[in-house]
């Protein structure tokens, strides 16, 4: 279970990007976060694995408070959180297998990492997962030889190799064409079911969110203003999520304050 309470993130002295945000994710549901650019979706995801340092608040994953961890403990916590990126973030000049095994870097010894002596069970697991997403025959290819959809599959397998307790996906389909994008979304949904894994997906495409996820969270300017089943996302909710300006939002703040 992931429980976020009162999370605030402020860059410099400006307006906070996340404003006292609360969110709880239970079970193995696929949750999508929608909202216009700048709503804080990406910051929220990056706060969870501390690629972005939260300003205040609490994030608890299966009993572990994440916001206070440092060094070795932080790395141990991070390997339980898989992440899939918009631009795949593969190491282009390494082979697909090395990219996939880099998901295990938090587990294996430095010697094994440098010499590429991966444990047998990791290699078997990698081949199984690659087979599952259809890229096993590319194991020896360099990552930059693959197409966008194939590269994102490598990204997904890398995250799953971590043996994660939750999977974060930051706009996983934004760099892909519509057809490939649906394949990846379907894959994420199916894998979540197969591996009994909660998945949190930032997404621009509301249709895909409706089709492939169990729950939709709508964000606007650092707050959650919608949180319900996909069916309940009506036109009015959509308008609320995608309209308005930071200015309008701030003026309501002022009213509340006074």
């Amino acid at each position: 279970m992931l429980k976020i309470t009162d999370l605030v993130k402020r860059y410099g002295k400006g307006d906070p990007v996340l404003k006292n945000l609360d969110l709880t994710i239970e079970g193995e549901s696929v949750v999508s976060i929608i909202g216009s650019s700048g709503a804080g979706k990406s910051t929220l995801l990056r706060c969870i694995n501390r690629l972005v340092e939260p300003t205040s608040g609490s994030i608890v994953l299966n009993g572990t408070e994440l916001t206070t961890l440092q060094g070795r403990e932080l790395r141990a916590a991070r390997r339980k959180i898989g992440m899939v990126f918009q631009s795949f973030n593969l190491v282009d000049r390494l082979t697909v297998m090395e990219n996939v095994q880099s998901g295990r870097l938090g587990y294996i010894s430095t010697w094994a990492a440098v010499m590429r002596r991966y444990p047998k069970k990791d290699i078997r697991r990698a081949f199984e997962l690659m087979e599952r997403v259809g890229i096993a025959h590319y194991a020896d290819k360099r990552a930059d030889e693959l197409s966008g959809g194939e590269r994102q599959r490598v990204g997904v397998v890398r995250a799953l190799m971590q043996d994660p307790e939750i999977l974060l996906a930051d706009e996983p389909t934004a760099s892909l064409d519509p057809k490939t994008s649906e394949q990846i979304m379907g894959l994420l949904r199916d894998l979540a079911g197969e591996l009994k894994l909660p998945v949190l997906i930032n997404i621009h495409n509301v249709n895909e969110a409706k089709i492939y996820t169990d729950r939709i969270v709508g964000m606007r300017y650092g707050r959650i203003i919608f949180d319900d089943k996909p069916d309940s996302l009506d036109q009015e909710a959509m308008d609320q999520i995608y309209s308005g300006s930071p200015h309008a939002d701030r003026s309501t703040d002022m009213k509340e304050a006074s």
Binding site: T95, M97, E98, R116, Y118, K120, K121, I123, R124, A126, F127, E128, E131, A136, A139, D140
Partner: peptide, 12 residues
């Protein structure tokens, strides 16, 4: 289901 290979060498 574990008929997947369990060895891998980086292509030289």
């Amino acid at each position: 289901m574990s008929d997947a290979p369990d060895t891998w060498r980086k292509p030289p």
